[in-house]
Design a protein around this nucleic acid. Structure first.
Lengths: 288, 288
DNA sequence: CGTAACTTTGATAGCATTCAAAGAAGGTGG
DNA sequence: CCACCTTCTTTGAATGCTATCAAAGTTACG
């Protein structure tokens, strides 16, 4: 009960997150602050040239930008959580990512000239508005900015590569495990607990992101929980055995595997399993 | 027989591709040529400053760069076809893309500082070696370069977004259809036939890229062929009904779809189908 | 000409979806 | 403050799509 109240409070106010500069202003941020937000591995600090960027506030459920809107600025999340949703021609929607503090929105919108997905706040958010031409101009005078811009693009490319691996090579169970580990990692980077956190999104949104159905997400979470690897209470997740979760990622050999590893895990698994075969026995499989 | 010989010849020599500058040199290219290669929608021509970039030749099966190698340069494909292969910790490999003329290799390698995938030539290739620092420096003096670099990153991000949609929302059948339409589009952009082309990759490589098994690729191609939408002769594919292929993409409503479209296609499909239910009846489904 | 790589096709099994329904949580208005 | 409604979540049973296993056919190549 009490824990839940604390969690919900944290969800709305982002209390407990470190790195929140004391001299910050909710209406605008200065350049060094913006760069610190972007740079995961802070190198040399940037001189404060007095340049500031405005901060936009987005309430839960509101959209920061819609697919098709003219591309005007990158948005750098300072606090809160969002979801990026792409709507295909048929009307089916797909969640592409869950941006949080430090993440950049709009990088794929530069070339087409319009945003390619909706950005919808999952809770109360503060995002820094970074007009692209402005930051590009600054990059000519302020050293370090140009490189940071390129690495930001490159980092986002690497992230999408991981998503492609997740969607193309992992089973539903492994996708959920990977999702939990990813959230754990990102929360840890924010100074929050690595082993216990509150998800901001529904099962359906998780499923859309992972390319599986919401029922499958629910079932898999239940299975992981009954195997003792995690605990789930509504949106609150606690990781009890992260290494075991990681080992799930290393099981699947879904589509193409090389010509090595003749271990034939499928058969050994089946013979090793003493439990009788039954439908939806994901928990038994995980426990084995 | 004769047709096959011609196709194979084209595959190896890239004969018939337009846009091959007459004054080109296989050992190096000048800046304007490089920019034309990158810019799909050529804007203002760039002054020839005399800067040149070396061209590297890669023979079929050779690797241009390996995952883990220090990132030194971007590679811009001038001719030939390659595959990008990512090897995960377990040893499973996944094909990430099939670069061809105009495509850029290495964009996601900047931030980690090393290549994140192997680049393997599927046939004889010529790639322009573009050291990143060199092009970044040039961008400060030559107008247009900076913007082109950013749009190149952004374009690659958009491409990966399409792959994510393919892997996350489409059925195996739709993935194959999307793959064929994509290849058609890219060949057309090169001045080759939009409706008939020779695939350079195996069924296994296609399957790895699409997140399905090689048998499924083969079955789906056979089904599309017997439905009359395409013709398949080994690696040579002819599209007979591209609109029908496109309509396959608009069928699936795999993971999350909004709350609209209450058309309940699944039931109507089943009732409309007069053929008896049988396994592997993909052809019947497509024909319907 | 024989071997290796690739492709096709069939039969079977398994995992994820679909369909269905009940339970829990959160918000609203009386 | 509680009833009511909507949204979200969980769980079950059955179907279906794709993977797996297997084998034959084809092509390429030495």
């Amino acid at each position: 009960m009490q824990a839940k109240l604390i969690s919900l409070h944290a969800a709305n106010s982002n209390a407990g997150i470190r790195n929140v500069d004391s001299n910050c202003n909710w209406a605008s941020v200065r350049l060094p602050e913006l760069m610190a937000l972007l740079d995961t591995h802070p190198s040399e600090p940037v001189a404060d040239t007095g340049v500031t960027f405005s901060v936009r506030r987005v309430k839960p459920g509101e959209t920061l930008c819609r697919a098709g809107d003219a591309f005007e600025a990158l948005y750098v999340v300072r606090s809160g959580f969002l979801k990026m949703v792409s709507l295909d021609p048929v009307g089916n929607e797909q969640v592409l990512s869950f941006p949080m503090r430090g993440d950049v929105i709009g990088l794929s919108s530069l070339e087409p000239g319009h945003y390619t997905a909706d950005a919808i706040a999952l809770d109360s958010c503060h995002v820094v508005v970074v007009p692209f031409d402005r930051i590009a101009n600054l990059s000519r005078s302020v050293p370090g900015i140009e490189r940071l811009l390129y690495t930001t693009f490159s980092r986002e490319l690497a992230r999408r590569q991981r998503v492609i691996r997740l969607l193309g090579m992992l089973s539903a169970e492994a996708r959920v495990a990977a999702f939990l580990l990813d959230m754990s990692e990102r929360f840890a980077r924010l100074g929050c607990s690595r082993s216990s956190f509150v998800l901001r999104m529904t099962r359906e949104e998780i499923g859309s992101y992972l390319g599986i159905k919401l029922e499958t997400v629910s079932r898999t979470l239940s299975a992981l929980a009954s195997a003792g690897l995690i605990a789930v209470d509504r949106r609150e997740v606690t990781l009890h055995d992260a290494p075991a979760l990681r080992s799930i990622l290393e099981q699947r050999t879904e589509p193409g595997w090389g010509r090595r590893q003749r271990q034939r895990r499928a058969s050994t698994d089946r013979s090793a399993s003493t439990a009788p075969v039954r439908p939806q026995a994901a928990a038994a499989r995980i426990a084995a």
